[in-house]
Amino acid sequence: MAERIKINVGVIFGGRSVEHEVSIISGQQAMAALDQEKYHAVPIYIAKDGQWYSGEALADVASFREMKKLLAAAIPVELSVNFGQKELVERSGSRLKKPWRQRIDVALPVGHGTSVEDGCLQGLLEMAGIPYAGPGVLSSAVGMDKIMMKAVLRENNLPVVDYLAYSSWQWHEDGERLVAEIKEKLGLPLVVKPANLGSSIGISRVADEQALAEAIELAASFSDRLIVEKAVQPLREINCAVLGAPGQTVASVCEEPMAAADILSFADKYLNAGPAKGMSGSKRRILDADDALALRLQDLAQQAFAALDCRGVCRVDFLINEASGDIFVNELNTIPGSLAFYLFEPAGLAFDALVERLIHIALERQRQQERLITVYASNILAQGSFKGKK
């Protein structure tokens, strides 16, 4: 009996992002979830300096404790950007040695944060003609920028908290005016965030003017775009993930993470959970499936998913005012930590089935893209002189 040909899945993780280590955990989880009978997992690690590596040594999370030793054992590679080549090629300084090559049939990006979740990596994969899981370039870029995301959500009549947006240069040039404007328009307390980070990095809750200035300074150290939101209190945070493609989505169960402070911190999400579990190990409570609030949030999550034209799996985070019952869409995570598998498991969708569904969505999207007209076969430049014409 002929051996079954496996699909080469390039699992891309790491990246030049402050969420680098979180991405390593997600990458290891995704590789472990791939059905080895159907798929060949190809680890693709982007180091903190932006260099790309592959090789079996990268498939062991314990090896990342000794980074220098790991990278010496890994294969330095580049992704061919020649459309349709779909290949990793070893970066070799020797002309005598034949470079290592590995075909990539489909990519599974599990990078979190800047350069890997914000459309940059997705654009590279588009240029290379490699089908990939998750949202496209525009959806990824909008989903990563909290300012643009809230504008799109508001335009689609989805509820968001009152907010003000600034560039870091505005803060450095006229900080006193900004503080006064923020206090006048939003009042206190507030939540200050970098516009393009996740995992609660650089986020502060503030209750006075001095803390506000310090929080803006912190956020400006991570991003050149800042967002200041009116704090919801008393606050309840609930998350719901969505899986699918436009017109074909399913919502997960709803979870209520248990925070040690007023807002969920990086430690609440990852450090207190244990390195093997990532976000899946954080303390949380699952809402009953027939709970009226859960049903409402599942509907809103799918509306937000559609508003950003997402694909794959996204986690939608909600803020709820416990006193008034008002619901606000806080943000969409277009590549959620641990791919949010822990939100689908309670409803019977195992991690391996979730990953397989992501691959199928990626391949179907590629087939749809191939039916579109992207270039003309004719060459209008061969028809004559165009000198002086526009």
Rank of each mutant, 00 (worst) to 15 (best):
P275N: 11
S282Q: 14
A251M: 04
V253D: 04
S252R: 08
L264G: 01
G312R: 02
G278T: 07
R285G: 00
A276E: 15
A292H: 06
M258R: 13
D268T: 11
K269S: 10
A276H: 13
D317L: 02
I263V: 10
P246W: 07
A301C: 11
Q302R: 15
Y270Q: 01
L235S: 03
D299W: 12
A261P: 00
I286R: 11
S252G: 10
R285S: 02
A245Q: 07
L300R: 08
P246A: 12
A306L: 10
L293E: 13
I263L: 15
R284S: 13
S252F: 07
D309L: 10
I263A: 07
R311P: 04
Q233R: 11
S280L: 03
R284Y: 09
L243T: 12
D262M: 13
S265T: 15
I320C: 09
L295V: 13
D268H: 10
I320R: 04
K269R: 05
R285Y: 03
L243V: 15
I263E: 02
E237Q: 13
M258C: 13
M279L: 15
N321P: 05
Y270I: 04
L264M: 12
A304D: 01
P234Y: 00
N321K: 08
A273I: 01
D317A: 03
R236A: 13
E256L: 10
P246H: 10
R315I: 08
M279Y: 02
A276T: 12
D291N: 14
A307C: 11
A306D: 08
A292E: 12
Y270R: 00
I238T: 10
L297I: 08
A294H: 00
D288Q: 09
P246V: 10
D299F: 11
G247K: 08
A259R: 06
D290R: 08
A307D: 05
L319S: 07
A261L: 06
I263M: 10
D288G: 00
S252C: 08
N239G: 07
L300S: 05
Q303M: 06
A276F: 04
D290S: 07
Q248C: 08
A260W: 05
V242F: 10
C240I: 09
R296E: 14
L271G: 01
D262Q: 13
E255W: 00
R315V: 02
D317C: 00
S280N: 05
A307E: 08
A294G: 02
F318C: 03
A245F: 03
F318E: 03
G274I: 05
I320E: 02
L271E: 14
A261T: 14
T249G: 14
L308G: 04
L287T: 09
D268F: 03
L287C: 11
Q248G: 02
P275Q: 12
I320G: 00
D288I: 02
A259C: 04
A241Q: 12
A301H: 06
D268M: 10
